[in-house]
Amino acid sequence: MALTFANVSYTYSEGLPYAQRALKDVSCEVERGDLAVILGPTGSGKSTLLRVAAGLLAPEVGTVLIDGEPVQGGATARAGGVGLVFQSPETQLFAETVLDDIAFGPRNQGLSEESARQHAVQALETVGLDPSQFAERSPFGLSGGEARRVALAGVLAMSPRYLLLDEPTAGLDGSGRRDLAAALAAARMHSGVIVVTHDAEEFLPHADLALVLSAGDCTFSGPADELIQRPAALADAGIRPPAVLETMIRAQALGASFRNLTLDPQDAAALLVAAREARA
């Protein structure tokens, strides 16, 4: 039971003078319950990979399988295969009330009105918004963080087996980021989660798998712990490592010696103190 990319390549406007190769021979496998983070700078092909995963773009070469079945765009979404949350998804809210907007997806899946509303209420609770306060509000009067969570609820209400998110924390303040991270942790109980981001700080510490893209090439694919031990893979792709990791790398450059690198601040502090004592 996994979302599988097998040797996926994709080129925009192939055959035209301004053709752009977006993905080249990308392979990886994300299981249900996993959090996979796809890292890369702007233009590295991250968003394209999500679109291919959702079946919105057909790969030029290679295949994408969802639990062994080929992905098929809207049909896969309606069958609860994948749920895609785009960048700034709050700009796609349209209904008169929050509940009505969230129930849009379940209705398209063919659920009855009552069942669709139940799914919508549950999704609101999952993203940490109180249905009694938010259900009847207009989606156009919400704060940025609230609107982002409502948009996420709109996808979660469709009970996707794999949740795909494109830069989910872009433009959110600190509390908005924390609320969204909590909502994703809850979503991970039922779905595999793939997050695309250029910010390693936010999701790498919680990730099981990591993929690093650079100009469409996959320069790293494997367990997130392995990527943490190889920070050069982040630097080569132009991604700034998380602050804790960067501190340890700088300490190494100053002569400190660590057996392992870590993203946990507590462990990193202990390792730094031990390294200083060893040098003394």
């Binding site: 919105l56 765009g73 809207g74 979404a77 994948v82 895609l84 849009f104 398209n108 996808v155 469709m158």
Partner: peptide
């Protein structure tokens, strides 16, 4: 195009 794709991924036809 972005909104059409987003609503399609929520099952809109």
């Amino acid at each position: 195009e972005k909104v059409i794709v987003a609503q399609s991924s929520r099952g809109a036809r």
